[in-house]
């Protein structure tokens, strides 16, 4: 396996308005790896993906994908770079007015001049890879959540990208679909020579398939390591996350005034 770096984020800082989301993140993904980015909801995982996809630009630090920095490119350059990336959105984001087949064929028709029968073969290959060749004619509304996710995956790999990003690929799936999707990500990464970046908070499923894990919390990388290292990690935050405990370094209560004050039992309020 070729092990040079594909995605490299150095000290990235980003905030929406005045609210800082990322406060100096370092992250690398090597070619052929499945890298997971984990953390509790709202910690900036999706923001990281948007940085890599060039939808937003880091206010400080560098983001590099295959040696290019998506935030610095002009529109043409960015679109050229994006053709080498695939992205699986949280709920698939299939185009609802097109059949599964047309969804997968979308990029081929937009970006290539291939004749229609070549497109047909390619699309059926991709759909076959996710096990849904027979569902080609179905509309997104007729697909189950898991199937829609797989069609979206087929669409993400339609142009044979070098990098595929997954935004919560496991959210809202039943255990069977979960396993299927996890295995697909691993298998496609290995067979197509992709690099996969998986943003997830599904620890158990993702630890089965990933090569490397980053834990994000409060805008910084809290912990990183291979799946085995993470499972064995003694860090309280990671421990809480992996074992799903309700209280710990991540408190159960949202920061608030002392309880007694809110109930009017404090000394100063009467």
């Amino acid at each position: 396996m070729q092990h040079d770096t594909l995605v490299e984020i150095e000290n990235a800082v980003f905030g929406y308005g005045a609210r800082p989301v990322l406060k100096g993140v370092n992250l690398t993904a090597k070619r052929g790896q499945v890298v997971a980015i984990m953390g509790s909801s709202g910690c900036g995982k999706t923001t990281l993906l948007r940085l890599i996809g060039g939808q937003i630009k880091a206010s400080q630090g560098t983001v590099r994908v295959a040696g290019e920095s998506p935030g610095e490119l002009d529109r043409t350059g960015l679109y050229r770079l994006r053709r080498k990336m695939g992205m699986l959105f949280q709920f698939g984001a299939l185009f609802t007015d097109m059949s599964a087949f047309d969804n997968v064929a979308f990029q081929l028709r937009e970006h290539t001049d291939l004749p229609e029968d070549a497109i047909r073969d390619l699309v059926l290959m991709k759909l076959h890879a996710v096990g849904l060749r027979g569902a080609a004619h179905l509309m997104p509304a007729e697909l189950s959540g898991g199937m829609a996710r797989r069609v979206a995956l087929a669409r993400a790999i339609a142009l044979e990208p070098m990098l595929v990003m997954y935004d919560e690929p496991f959210a809202g799936l039943d255990p069977i679909s979960l396993g299927v999707t996890g295995n697909l990500i691993r298998r496609l990464t290995d067979t197509l020579g992709l690099t996969s970046l998986v943003v997830t908070h599904d620890v158990q499923e993702s630890l089965k398939i990933v090569d490397y894990v980053y834990f994000v919390s409060e805008g910084v990388i809290m912990a990183e390591g291979t799946a085995a290292e993470i499972r064995a990690s003694g860090l309280p935050y990671v421990h809480q996350f992996v074992h799903g405990e309700s209280d710990g370094p991540v408190p159960f209560h949202y920061p608030a005034r002392p309880y007694a004050d809110d109930l009017g039992l404090g000394e100063g309020s009467a």
Partner: peptide, 22 residues
């Protein structure tokens, strides 16, 4: 609005297709 809500427009943009044009 629905295409935006279900991230279809973002998806299109990530596929290097400009939703304004397409």
């Amino acid at each position: 609005g629905l295409m935006k809500t279900t991230e279809q427009l973002s998806a299109m943009e990530m596929m290097a297709v400009d939703p304004l044009a397409r």
